[in-house]
């Protein structure tokens, strides 16, 4: 899967990181990096170390990215899904966009209560002979315990901001954060129990077959080769033993209006 529009994606990324856009036209984006982004992206630690030591202001670089393949020979760095720069940005996002607390923007003049939600985006990796990933976006309402999957789709319809809007107040969660997380975990495990795992069965029986071959190979030399045999068994298990990894991509506490909260649960 590719991002629908890589150009907009990187434009948004640099905007969200307070970099000034100098040029943005026909698949070419030129930006003035901030000190912070230069340090993160441009890989010149010695320069920044030196500048800081001397107490000088640093001079962050200007860079151009080209997303239009027809223009890739022009001045600037051609980026595409898969290019190292894009993956550098993805990696940065892993830490930059991991934890949040956000409030829904409401326009009413009345005092409005905001209801707390714990939202986690979870990546499940199934690893055996082969590997695949699945992403679940789960929201848990921390007052009544209602749960919602595909939560990100809902959130994207709303306007969210980092500070609490005027005339709004937050309701204290009834479900504590950590037990809320337990509920989400239980949901994920329940989900896993109810899907079929032929991939794991295949991997498991394959592992047993390979072990048998190995035992046969070493049957006459087990005495002198025991260490190697054990090592190779370990290698086999590393390669075939079915595993499921659950990892939270990102998550946080979201305070949503009563109206939005009810709409989501419906």
């Amino acid at each position: 899967m590719t991002l629908e529009n890589l150009h907009n994606f990187i434009t948004d990324y640099f905007t969200a990181n307070q970099c000034e856009i100098l040029e943005n036209d026909n698949g070419k984006l030129s930006i003035q990096l901030t000190d912070k982004m230069d340090e993160k992206l441009m890989n010149r630690p010695f320069y920044w170390q030196y500048v800081k030591k001397l107490g000088y202001p640093g001079e962050p670089m200007q860079v151009s990215f080209i997303t239009n393949p027809d223009r890739k020979d022009e001045d600037g760095e051609w980026v595409h899904f898969g290019s190292p720069r894009i993956h550098q940005i993805f990696n940065l996002l892993n830490s930059q966009g991991k934890y949040t607390r956000l409030f829904e923007r409401t326009t009413t003049g009345n005092r409005t209560a905001l209801i707390p939600w714990l939202v986690t985006n979870v990546k499940i990796s199934y690893t055996g002979k082969h590997k695949k990933d699945e992403i679940l976006s789960i929201g848990l309402q921390l007052i009544n315990g209602a749960m919602k999957t595909m939560m990100m789709d809902e959130l994207e319809k709303l306007h969210l901001q980092p500070s609490i809007p005027d005339f709004c107040y937050t309701i204290t969660p009834i479900i504590r954060l950590k037990s809320g997380y337990q509920r989400i975990n239980r949901y994920v495990e329940n989900y896993l129990e109810n899907i079929e795992h032929s991939w794991a069965e295949e991997s498991w029986s394959h592992l047993q077959e390979e072990k048998k071959l190995l035992e046969h190979f070493y049957q006459h030399s087990m005495d002198e080769d025991e260490d190697r045999f054990n090592q190779e068994i370990k290698d086999l298990e590393g390669r075939f033993k079915p595993q499921i990894n659950i990892e939270v991509i990102n998550g946080g506490l979201f305070y949503l209006s009563q109206a939005s909260s009810s709409k989501i649960i419906l």
Partner: peptide, 8 residues
């Protein structure tokens, strides 16, 4: 919210 969304 922007970075959160992009990370996802």
């Amino acid at each position: 919210w922007e970075l959160f969304k992009m990370s996802y």
